[in-house]
């Protein structure tokens, strides 16, 4: 059975990617399961979707713990432990990253000898979710070596049937771009077996203690613990304040920020809490002196690294 996981951010079309691949497998004669992660997804938040495909009826259910292929649509997710991008990768797994960084660099960064493949973002625009999902689906299809071009195109058509013709055409092109780009690695992803019933690791069940109600009620006994959630990781674009253009009104950006992550410093300049800023860009849209600009998160991180270097 093939076990394939797609990782991306809410809004990047990973559910669509999994469905295109699922349909392509199905049209190629496979038994298939595909599903997005079930939960409260938010735009920009790390999400995943998965596909299982095999020649026999699929009996496994739920999340894939040991993937044969992991496709990562947004390379900034790799550094986020909570995204679980690398979870369960085994010696024969393939990791496919949509990224501009070479595969060798990733192998070094991840300290792995496993197979890492890369694919440049579609049309140079990492913010076009529709094409990103088709690209990922097409690339995954080629890596399995089990899906022909025609099946992939039909799968795109079926999944996007409700969309205008030009959207479908663009996605066909996106899917084929992924399919063709991975021609060199066609069939690199293999099928893996099920967990064997002899010699398995027994679950470490315990007899749960009866905890007092102070512990055992779904109650939080402190204020504002949510600040431990770094929603800044949802961000794909980063607002940056040009202090020279800022007139220190002290209220517009800070008041309109839904998340309340813009404060004012001692000199009455606004300060953005990037750990929590979700990148909605209301501040940019509302600043009366246009003192706020948007840069990509990638550019932002490069600037951060450069600044740290200067400090050191």
């Amino acid at each position: 059975m093939y076990r394939i996981r797609f990782h991306g951010r809410g809004g990047q079309g990973m559910k669509t990617a999994s469905r295109i691949l699922g349909s392509a497998f199905f049209l190629s004669g496979f038994e298939v399961q595909d599903a997005p992660r079930y939960g409260a997804e938010r735009r920009g938040a790390p999400i995943f979707a998965f596909v299982r495909a095999g020649r026999a009826a699929i009996l496994e259910r739920g999340n894939i713990d040991r993937p044969d292929l992991v496709v990562v649509a947004d390379d900034t997710l790799v550094a986020i432990p909570g995204a679980g991008v690398l979870a369960g990768l085994h010696a024969d797994s393939v990791l496919l990253l949509v990224t501009t960084v070479p595969a060798d660099d990733w192998q070094q960064r991840l300290n792995t000898t496993g197979t890492v493949l890369t694919l440049p973002p579609p049309g140079g625009s990492e913010r076009d979710p529709a094409l990103l999902s088709a690209l990922c689906a097409g690339a995954a299809a080629r890596l399995t070596g089990a899906i022909e071009r025609e099946a992939l195109i039909r799968a795109v058509d079926e999944e996007l049937a409700l969309y205008p013709a030009d959207t479908i055409a663009a996605n066909r092109a996106g899917a084929l771009a992924g399919f063709d780009a991975l021609a060199v690695a066609a069939g690199r992803v293999g099928e893996s077996g099920a967990v064997a019933a002899d010699g398995y690791d027994a679950p470490d069940w315990i007899d749960l203690p009866a905890d007092g109600v102070g512990l055992a009620a779904p109650t939080i006994h402190a204020g504002a613990t949510s600040v431990e959630v770094r929603t800044g990781l949802w961000r794909t674009m980063r607002p940056v304040i040009d202090l020279e253009k800022c007139h220190r009104c002290t209220w517009v950006c800070g008041t309109f920020c839904p998340d309340g992550v813009i404060g004012v410093d001692a000199e009455r300049y606004p300060v953005i809490d990037y750990d929590h800023c979700k990148g909605c860009m209301i501040c940019l849209a509302q600043c009366p002196t246009h003192a706020i600009a948007a840069i990509t998160e990638r550019q932002g991180r490069e600037a951060d690294i450069a600044a740290e270097g200067e400090q050191a």
Partner: peptide, 23 residues
């Protein structure tokens, strides 16, 4: 508007969508 508080009580880090008008 300058009388509006510039420090905010509500903790950041909620799961509301980016740009949520309700939040």
């Amino acid at each position: 508007a300058r009388d509006l508080p510039s420090a905010h009580l509500l903790g950041a880090g909620t799961a509301m969508c980016a740009g949520c008008g309700g939040l």
